[in-house]
Amino acid sequence: MSRIVVPGELLADKPIRMEAGFIEGNNTYSTLLGIYHEEKGVLVPLEGLWYPQRGDIVIGIVEEARLNAYNIELNSPYKGIIIAKFVETRLQRGDVIEAEVKEIDETKTVVLMRPKKLFGGKIFDVKPSKIPRIIGKQNTMVDQIRNGTKSVIMVGMNGRVWLKGGNVALATEAVLKIVEEAHTTGLTERIKALLGPQSQPQQGV
C-alpha cells in the first residue's frame, strides 16, 4: 500500500529510519509532502529540496570570480565554491558549469570539483525532487530524451536542466512532462510516445 502523506503525518507506530522521515518516541512521521510506500518503509518526496551529497553532479552559475576561488550559485541555500587552482581555464561571472560535489564543509559550503563549462544552450530550474525521475533508472529516461531529440542534455541534482542542440523545444516538453507526472506509473511509455521511435536505443549497433 502506498499513500500521499503530508508533513507531520504518522507513517508508522514504530521507529523506522528513513529519508524525509523523523522519529519521535516510538513513532515515525513525515517531514514532507510525499508518497509513503508502507511495505518498503520508503518515503518518496513529491516536494523536496536538494541536500548536497558527495559525488552529486550539479549545474551552477559563476556568481563571483575571485583570485583564488569561484563562488557558484546552485539554486539552493547552499553556496558552491571551486578552488581556482584546480581549474585549468579561468571562469567568468555568468558562466554556466557542470561540476561534481567534492565535499560539504562545516559551514555547509558545497566544495565542487572537475568543473566543465557549458557554452550557450538553454537552462531552467525544476524541483530537485523530480530530478531522479528525469534521469531514470540507469539513465533510461535521460537517454531516451537524448536519442529522441538529439539534444545534449545535462541534469544537475540541484534541480537544474541544461539543453543544447537538436530539438530543444521537444526536449523541454519532455522534461516538463516528467516533472508534472513524476509520481505516476507508465511514464516511460508516455515519454517514448511523445519523443517518437528514435528515442529507443538502436539494436545491434
Partner: peptide, 12 residues
C-alpha cells in the same frame, strides 16, 4: 504553501 515548497516541517 510551505508544504508545496518542499521545506521540511515536523507538522502542518
Amino acid at each position: 504553501a510551505l508544504a508545496t515548497s518542499g521545506i521540511p516541517m515536523t507538522d502542518l
